[in-house]
Each structure stands twice: as structure tokens, then as C-alpha cells.
Design a binder for these strands. Structure first.
Length: 272
DNA sequence: AAACGCGCCTGCGGGC
DNA sequence: TGCCCGCAGGCGCGTT
């Protein structure tokens, strides 16, 4: 489900939990995408949440006992604050109860999400993080970096910007939207892009993600933020899910094709 | 080593 | 009405 903007909004919404004590943890399955650690409850109960950050599409919840809860929402995961009257729902896999009597509920119908624990000193060597590329909204993601990374690459530019080793957080929606903004067709090959196009692409990715964050993310079907509210960026889509709809700029119809098994949307007139 | 395709899951909408 | 098919915000692994 969520790409960088959606996970970022959830991370921002969860900041109010920092300083709160976890009093009870209930896990309702042993395995989602991977095994949830044995004794997950015991390792997280009776701790204080000291920090919550996002890295790529992962959330990291730091605890006072030097344990970090890693959460990934996969395609269909949600992480929503509930009050003590909440009744467990289908596909709830984890419920964290706080001293304030708020609950944090992880729900994931498709179970592509991840719940794991690492120790504080394992972040750098963790297989989740060690090979990840830079955050797109930082200065490390710039033209020089991208040019260097793509100069010998023979794949399509769309698959490249969705590759976490090149840049994190750009999923299927924002890849199509960013390429539209940069006026680059998704099938173009990495090593064939001009300097000007790469510069435009870097700034298009940044502004697309920033604008999506401002709009509260994109809700296609089931994305909700930590307060169970939908996002609004889907109303600003230029191409995603717009097959056969008129392009806002040139009035030609938006096209769709499949790349890497994923739907890809573009305007043959506006993008070259 | 890079570059694809596939599978992991459930739910939903469309076509017959 | 109901069944079957295809498709859905991700990602890692196996095969070429």
C-alpha cells in the first residue's frame, strides 16, 4: 500500500506516542510476511517509546530497553490509534496498549507487511537497511548521485527509480507521477537520459513526494493515516489510474502499459 | 553481476 | 445470484 508519503504521514502522526509507556502487547499470528519474533510481547512490554522515525518505507519505534520495533506496511497494512473501547477486527495482527489507554493497532489483510525487532546497535548491519539508497527528500539524492548511479544501467527509468538500492520510497504511484512531471516516458533507458532530463527527474521526484505529503498521501482503497483518515493526493494524479482519461495538459488520452508486472501510466504527448 | 519473473496473501469489482 | 479471473501502494528470491 503505502509509499514514502503515506509512511511519513503515519510517522508524523505517531510522534505523540514518544514518551509513552507500553503496558501490554498482543500478537495474533506467528507469521505475516516473515515470522514475528518469538517473545515479541515480553521484549516490548513495560518499556518507554523514546523515538519514532521513518527510513524508506519502514517505521522504527525505539524503546527504552534498546530494542527497536521495525514495522513495514507492505501493500495493505495500516497502523491506527484506537481508544480502549476498540474491538479487535479481522486481520489485526498486533495491538500495542499504552499506559494512556490508547491502542496502536497493526492490521494487514494481505500480510505482506513486516513486524520485527532489532537491537539499537544492529541498525547499520540490519539486512533491512544496509543496502538501501538515499532518502529522496535529502540532499544526498541529487543530480550527481543519480547520474553516477544510472550511467551504466540498462533498465527502464521507471524500474530504476522504484529500486530501493538507487533511491528509497518511490513506489508504483509516485514513479508514474514523477516521470510525468519530468516529461520522461517510463520506458526510456537509464543510460539514454540527458543531463537536463536527470535534473528534472530529481526535482520531479522531490516535488511529487512533497506535494503528496502535504495532501495527506494517496488513498486508493484502504490507505488510512494513524488517525484513520484518508489522504487526498489521488485527486491530484496526472496519470496514475487515469487510463483513457484526457491528459490535463494536452487533452490526449493517458496510456497504460505493464512494466515489471506493474501498471504504468503516461502521456505520449507530454512525455518524451 | 545485472536483469527479469514469480510468489507471497486477501479482497474486490467486472464479466459471464 | 454466484463463480472465476485479474488486479491491487512492496519486496525478496530464484533463474537466466
Amino acid at each position: 500500500m503505502p509509499e514514502l508519503p503515506e509512511v511519513e504521514i503515519i510517522s508524523q502522526g505517531l510522534q505523540r506516542l514518544v514518551g509513552q509507556e507500553i503496558v501490554k502487547v498482543e500478537k495474533f499470528r506467528d507469521k505475516i510476511r516473515y515470522m514475528i519474533p518469538l517473545y515479541f510481547e515480553q521484549k516490548t512490554e513495560n518499556t518507554i517509546i523514546t523515538k519514532i522515525i521513518r527510513r524508506a518505507k519502514y517505521l522504527l519505534i525505539f524503546l527504552s530497553n534498546n530494542v527497536i520495533i521495525i514495522i513495514h506496511l507492505g501493500m495493505s497494512g495500516t497502523l491506527i490509534m484506537r481508544d480502549k473501547s476498540y474491538q479487535k477486527q479481522k486481520h489485526d495482527h498486533l495491538i500495542i496498549s499504552l499506559k494512556s489507554s490508547d491502542l496502536l493497532v497493526f492490521n494487514d489483510p494481505r500480510r505482506f507487511g513486516i513486524i520485527d525487532l532489532i537491537n539499537n546497535n544492529e541498525i547499520l548491519i540490519s539486512s533491512y537497511f544496509h543496502a538501501l539508497g538515499p532518502e529522496p527528500l535529502t540532499d544526498q539524492f541529487n543530480y550527481n548521485y543519480l547520474q553516477n548511479k544510472l550511467k551504466n544501467k540498462k533498465t527502464s527509468i521507471k524500474l530504476a527509480i522504484m529500486d530501493n538500492k538507487i533511491v528509497v520510497g518511490v513506489g508504483n504511484i509516485y514513479a508514474s507521477e514523477s516521470l510525468f512531471l519530468a516529461k520522461i516516458l517510463p520506458h526510456r533507458l537509464c543510460n539514454d537520459l540527458s543531463i537536463d532530463e536527470l535534473k528534472k527527474l530529481v526535482s520531479a521526484i522531490k516535488s511529487t513526494l512533497e506535494n503528496a505529503i502535504i495532501a495527506g498521501g494517496s488513498t486508493l482503497k484502504d490507505y488510512k493515516n494513524s488517525m484513520n483518515q484518508s489522504g487526498y493526493f489521488q485527486h491530484q494524479f496526472n496519470v496514475y489510474n487515469q487510463m483513457d482519461v484526457e491528459c490535463k495538459y494536452c487533452k490526449n488520452n493517458i496510456e497504460k502499459s505493464i512494466m515489471g508486472g506493474r501498471s504504468t501510466f503516461y502521456c505520449l504527448t507530454c512525455q518524451k
